[in-house]
């Protein structure tokens, strides 16, 4: 079923017309074997508008594999299911631990990301261990989220509206090491994707 799930570049015509002077970064993420479940690439900013996201639960699943929020925003967890859920995170490595408690069908919970930014954390349900999603806390309002398709190993992407003075970008991938990227206008670079030091793929990226 999910073979129909594809990558959607949300650059949009109206984005393109938004700022004629803004830069664009384009690139491709390549996985050697299994793609990560989710990821996000973003322009690291000092000042940014609050970003909030929503993650729904339905059919004993999270309907989104990725929720994104900024430190000034929040994540809304919505139980649209006929079953109770109990969403939690227990990422000792990134020091992100919470438990929102039992969520009855139809209820919702707001989650303020008070933990360190530049993190991508797995969340689950204590009642339904198969449930999995990821939440990103990013210092940015300009980002591109990925829900990777399991059999697609090459994923092109494009992020627009890059500020002319911005040179700092981050790629966070579920289960992999984060990639910090410095990129000036006109530059092209390639970085390895790794997990516990092992080669898992690459990202090529160029800025125009």
């Amino acid at each position: 079923m999910t073979k129909f799930k594809s990558i959607l570049m949300v650059t949009g015509l109206y984005t393109l017309s938004f700022l004629a002077s803004a830069d664009t970064i384009k690139g491709e993420i390549t996985f050697i074997k299994s793609p990560a479940k989710a990821g996000v690439i973003y322009e690291v900013k000092q000042n940014f508008k609050a970003v909030s996201g929503t993650i729904n639960q339905q059919g004993k699943k999270f309907t989104e594999m990725l929720g994104v929020a900024s430190p000034k925003g929040e994540l809304e967890l919505k139980n649209n299911d006929e079953f109770e859920h109990n969403i939690f995170a227990n990422d000792t490595k990134q020091n992100v631990q919470f438990d929102v408690g039992l969520m009855q069908p139809g209820s919702s919970q707001s989650l303020i990301p008070t933990w360190e930014p530049n993190t991508l954390v797995r969340i689950g349900c204590k009642i339904h261990p198969k449930m999995r999603s990821y939440i990103a806390n990013i210092p940015s309002d300009n980002y591109l989220g990925f829900e990777f398709e399991k059999k697609i190993k090459n994923i092109p992407f494009e992020l627009n509206k890059i500020g002319p003075n911005s040179t700092h970008f981050m790629l966070l991938l579920a289960g992999m090491d984060s990639v910090e990227i410095q990129l000036n206008k006109g530059e092209s670079k390639t970085f390895k994707l790794t997990r516990k030091g092992k080669d898992k793929g690459s990202i090529t990226i160029s800025r125009t």
Partner: peptide
Amino acid sequence: MYKQCKAILIISLLITNVAFATSK
């Protein structure tokens, strides 16, 4: 509000999947 940049990349039968109360 910056939605144009927020490229959450999903088209999908995710939508179909969630129509079921249980996994197929």
